[in-house]
Amino acid sequence: MPVSPTVRVQEAPFDPAAESAALTAGRVDVGGLASFVGLCRADDGLSALVLEHYPGMTERAITRIAEQACARWPLTGCTVIHRHGRLEPGAPIVLVLTASSHRAAALESCAFLIDWLKTGAPFWKREEFADGAERWVEAKAEDDLAAARWGGAP
């Protein structure tokens, strides 16, 4: 039986150390824990990113992607936390943690999840700049390609 992933969509910050500890506490079968933290980058004088999402569908879409990862790789644990709302440069946006007995499964499933989160979860980023300008981030063809290299859509 694949493990059930932990998925949270929240405005509040997350604690990668506490989330990592939760995936390994009390067990001795975890040989590798892969983690990815996506952060808000300050490109071109950006003052904040505002992340809008589709409540309900977001959780469903991420859960489906995470369940795919748990079915495809022999994971002992998986956590995905994605923030929404207004995030300033340097702020963490997304956390992906995958644990397995062996490193390859942990690393590959972590990359799979990051790639699919970009193209399969209903989030939209709006950039706010110091001069008051705003613009919606456009989807990138290279993100579709990165997700496509893993095969069929979750």
Binding site: G38, Y54, R60, A121, F123, W124, A139
Partner: peptide, 26 residues
Amino acid sequence: NQEFAGPEAPVRAGDEIAFFPPVTGG
């Protein structure tokens, strides 16, 4: 109803339909 769908997807009374730009999460 909270599943991505193409132009040919049927719509019925009572459905929840959403329209949006290509997603930019992660």
